[in-house]
């Protein structure tokens, strides 16, 4: 038997626990600084981040920042119907006299809520399935997960969402459920590819042979190496989910009137084109701004997580 050497001989004179704690703080600061540098190197990312922040603040404080909060609900004022943009109604009024600016800001609420909630539902499920399938590549677990994913991907997404939304009662929450159901396979696919490549890296073998648990390998060794594409996809997907949500509202399967939603507003306004253009154009522009904001933010997030020194 080889002589057992005690690796724990106490702290060397060179460093104290306080110094270690200090080092840790310094490195955390340094990492934050580097992340911010990489994010802000592209000015458009900052523009995107500020846009998203502004939209979120507007949506949260909608009752306080809009001139006619009452117009967000069941409100009718035919005397001011279809008024063009003016100093009184900056984006004009719709076919029953409601302030379009107010309704856009309130419409942001359901759009953003949809974008965020769908990802909250979809990402953990999709990522977990992808990680497991990728790590157990070639086994029945992989086959089961990935063939199920293929089945979901084979159904045209909007059709699936429409089917679900029409079977269930049409409202915002069922719309989210419908979109979630069509969305998770994309995350599974993405993470599956990344995980099945990462599991062949030697650092995974090193953890395996030394006896690390499967949970450690999945979440501490493989997951951190897939996080950058996941976050990038998330920030780009918010925009897509909002578009799909608007589509569902557009065909009447999402948010129900009189609750404002950007998609419904565009749908209603389309009947008054081209004469009362503002009824459809401003909500449509709002969708564009939201989507653009999240896309720019997504680019920044991608830059921020980009691997270093490779």
């Amino acid at each position: 038997m080889a002589e057992q050497v005690n690796l724990s001989r106490g702290f060397a004179a060179t460093i104290t626990p306080q110094q270690i704690a200090q080092l840790e703080r310094a490195s955390r600061r340094e990492n934050l600084g580097r992340s911010w540098y990489k994010f802000s190197r592209n000015i458009l990312s900052v523009v995107g981040a500020l846009t998203v922040l502004a939209l979120v603040l507007l949506a949260v404080f909608a009752p306080y920042v809009t001139p006619y909060p009452k117009h967000a609900g069941a409100f009718v004022n035919f005397a001011h119907a279809k008024e063009p943009p003016s100093s009184q109604y900056i984006f004009g009024t719709d076919q029953i006299g409601r302030d379009i600016f107010t309704r856009i800001i309130f419409g942001l609420r359901s759009s953003l809520l949809m974008g965020v909630m769908v990802l909250v539902l979809v990402v953990p499920v999709g990522v977990l399935l992808g990680l497991v399938a990728g790590y157990f590549q070639g086994t029945w677990i992989d086959a089961l997960i990935m063939r199920t994913t293929d089945i979901f991907l084979a159904v045209p997404p909007l059709i699936l969402a429409l089917a679900v939304a029409s079977v269930l009662e049409p409202n915002l929450w069922n719309g989210m459920l419908a979109v979630s159901l069509m969305w998770w396979p994309w995350y599974t696919r993405l993470v599956y590819g990344l995980a099945s490549a990462t599991r062949n890296e030697f650092f995974v073998s090193a953890a395996e042979v030394t006896g690390a648990s499967t949970a450690h390998i999945l979440f501490r060794e493989i997951l951190p190496n897939t996080i950058s594409p996941i976050f990038t996809k998330m920030s780009l997907d918010v925009a897509w989910v909002i578009i799909i949500g608007s589509m569902l509202s557009f065909v009447g399967l999402g948010v129900q009137p009189p609750e404002p939603s950007l998609g419904t507003m565009v749908a209603d306004g389309a009947r008054y084109l081209p004469d009362q253009w503002w009824i459809a154009v401003f909500p449509a522009l709002a969708i564009v701004v939201v989507v653009l904001g999240f896309n720019l933010l997504g680019d920044g997030v991608r830059d921020m997580f980009a691997a270093e020194g490779v």
């Binding site: 890296e201 030394t210 450690h216 951190p224």
Partner: peptide, 28 residues
Amino acid sequence: SSLNPRRNIKQILELPLQIHQPGKNRLE
């Protein structure tokens, strides 16, 4: 390839210690 690019040296060295030398002052 044998060191995980997303884990710092402390985390890399921590794993085998955690598994095979439990209960000691890990930082030490």
